[in-house]
Amino acid sequence: MAGTAPAPPPVSNEEMRLFQQLFYQQIGMHLPESKRALLSSRLSRRLVALGLPNFRAYHDLIAAPGEREERQRAIDLITTNETFFFREIGHFAFLSQKVLPSFSRTDTLRIWSAASSTGEEAYSIAMLLDNERHDAPWEIVGSDISQRVLDSARQGVYPMVRGENIPPADLKKHCLRGTGQYEGQFLVGKHLRQRVEFTQMNLTALPARLKPFDVVFLRNVIIYFDAPTKARVLANVTHFVKPGGYLLVGHSESLHGIQLPLQMISPSVYRKL
């Protein structure tokens, strides 16, 4: 009987420093010392799968220019993706009560879910827009650094427990309950999945081709950056908010001390000047 593959050795101080530098250079992510155990647990499976002796060998592999696929796999494993439908409901109320009534029904409303993770935020916005702008044009773009979560978002399949915050009427109108092998899951309706575009983006280096948006959701992501990267990401994203448009950040996030052409409407809602 074949023996169980030995577990990789612990992450050394030098290896931790190398991964900190690599993830910072690649995606601007600040990986504090407190995340050493997380890094070890999430990347160790790749060391075992590839037959590598230690974390230094894995770092050297994914740092190589030709190893883009494995490097993306490591980014997918190390980035935390936690979200749910209609998270921070006050932002959806603001969109419904303040933004939509003032927006022309002949112009195309463009909204960006800039850290969309597995898609719950983007589909929550889509449900609201389908309800309130069904006869008016709108577009939603969802982006993330992780290709893995974007693939999941495009599928639009979620455990039923993830739909607890979806209003029952919206769950009935916009989602299909799974049966058979999909028991305990639901599927976001095709009429919404076709309206949301999911694409990979690095917030520290956004593509110049990106068209500006009327509303940008940038929630619960800048907390993962150090101060210089946070300022750069906010400047990058704000550049693609139309004048008079809105930037929404997480309720626990602050833009204090960062010079941007934004007027605070509430502690987590800003309007571009």
Score class of each variant (00 low, 15 high):
A115C: 13
G156A: 02
P137C: 14
Q263P: 01
P101Y: 02
A7C: 08
P167D: 12
S102P: 09
F240D: 02
V237G: 03
Q97K: 14
V188G: 08
R105T: 10
A136H: 10
D226F: 05
F86C: 05
I265M: 12
Y270M: 05
Y182H: 15
L260H: 03
S34H: 05
A235C: 04
E253L: 08
S96C: 07
F217E: 05
E120W: 05
V237F: 03
K211H: 13
K211Y: 08
K173S: 04
N220H: 02
R209W: 09
K190L: 10
L18T: 00
A231Q: 13
F85Y: 12
P207I: 04
T106E: 15
P65W: 01
P137N: 14
M1R: 14
N202I: 11
G189P: 11
R193K: 10
T199G: 02
D107I: 03
V221I: 07
L31E: 01
G184P: 15
R71M: 15
R195C: 03
L22E: 04
H191R: 14
V237H: 02
H174R: 09
L129D: 01
F86L: 07
N220Y: 02
L210R: 14
L95T: 07
G184Q: 09
V241R: 00
S117V: 02
P243M: 00
S252K: 04
P261G: 05
P65C: 01
I265P: 03
R271K: 13
V196K: 00
F23H: 05
H191V: 12
V241G: 01
R17Y: 08
R87G: 02
F92S: 08
K190C: 03
H256V: 07
R36K: 14
Q72D: 15
V216R: 05
G163N: 08
P32W: 06
V188Y: 09
L273V: 11
G66E: 13
I222F: 04
P6V: 05
G66W: 09
E33Q: 12
P207V: 07
A74L: 12
V99S: 03
P167V: 10
M1G: 14
S124A: 04
T238H: 02
I265H: 06
L128F: 08
I140Q: 05
E197C: 14
P159V: 00
A37T: 15
H134T: 10
N81P: 15
E88I: 00
V161T: 12
S113W: 07
L95A: 10
L171P: 00
L206S: 11
G90L: 04
P261A: 00
R133V: 07
L128H: 11
Q259S: 15
F213D: 07
W138Q: 09
I222G: 01
A49P: 00
E88C: 00
R133F: 04
A231H: 06
R148V: 01
E70W: 11
L77C: 01
P228L: 00
I27K: 12
D151S: 11
T106F: 11
R133E: 00
G51D: 10
K211E: 14
S152I: 08
V149C: 07
H251I: 02
L171M: 12
R71D: 09
W112C: 08
G180L: 09
L95I: 14
D107E: 11
S124H: 11
Q185A: 10
D76R: 09
H91R: 12
